[in-house]
Amino acid sequence: MPGPAIVVEQLVREFRKGPRAVDGINLEVSPGEIYGFLGPNGAGKSTTVLMLTTLLPPTSGRASVGGFDIVHEGAHVRASIGAALQEAALDAILTGREHLMLQATLQGIPKATRVRRADELLERVGLVEAANRRVGGYSGGMKRRLDLALALVHSPSILFLDEPTTGLDLQSRTALWDEVARLAHDEGMTVFLTTQYLEEADALADRVGIIDHGKIVAEDTPAKLKAEIGSPTVEVLPADLATGDAIAEALGRFGSPTRGGRGSLTVQLPDGEAQLAELVRVLDQAGLHVASLHLHQPSLDDVFLAKTGRKLEGAAEEDPDATPEETTKRSRRRRGR
């Protein structure tokens, strides 16, 4: 694919009687890249995905996906993308296999290939046993896996995943992460992933865009974003609480240690994690014993806090500008739908 997989320029979406859900965002995603779109509920993540997948026309601005304009070349965009949206809308009457066959028919895949492709994907997402059961009886995790398989039926070059692991247990979440990473790294698929989970963006994304109130407030690799915020910290728990003052004095070489629970001391390493060895040597030379020693890297939550003044967790509750659509989705999730 020549050029970027996704290009977004000054994209805006306004809802009638509502706020600007997406407020002039710009971004570019390279082929084969996993782009994590991180933000709280109501930040504009899903609205952006709906526009990029041609489900919602933008109010202004332009975007191209797979080299095709999302407004004027929607049919070409849809042919080159796969998408698993926040709620896996499946037909309770159809079986998993029938869903795959239907999706393949809609995409114009020849019958012989359809059958083979359905078998392949059922195997890949671990639904072979349940393939001929109606999806009305599937668990949430099975529906998510089927949804992913449906998005991959026509081997798209770009995959959109809108909060793919919301509501999944840890095992299913990890399996989905592995599959997404494999798709990007082994098959060269471009992945645009929205999430409100920091660890998901951190674990999967080559680059992260942080969106808040419809605007991208930060964008880079997770490592660079975190490096921007500051250096790592080390938390030292003395083996003997009586040596706390001596340890504080030793750590004073690196900065002013702060005291925490159970007598722990935390100090920032101004020159990064390379100073950890030096810190250990200092403690050793002073004959001070520690029960544990933890290195804390800055998290994307710290990045979000620095850029927006709020913690990511709970930001949605403070958000007065959530679009009606996103508010509905949120309340549905709370009701367990």
Binding site: T53, L55, A75, R78, A79, L85, E87, A89, D91
Partner: peptide
């Protein structure tokens, strides 16, 4: 109502 129509709109190259 069920959201399945959105899947069709998303999948169908020629709507």
């Amino acid at each position: 109502d069920s959201g399945f129509a959105r899947r069709l709109l998303l999948t169908a190259p020629q709507r």
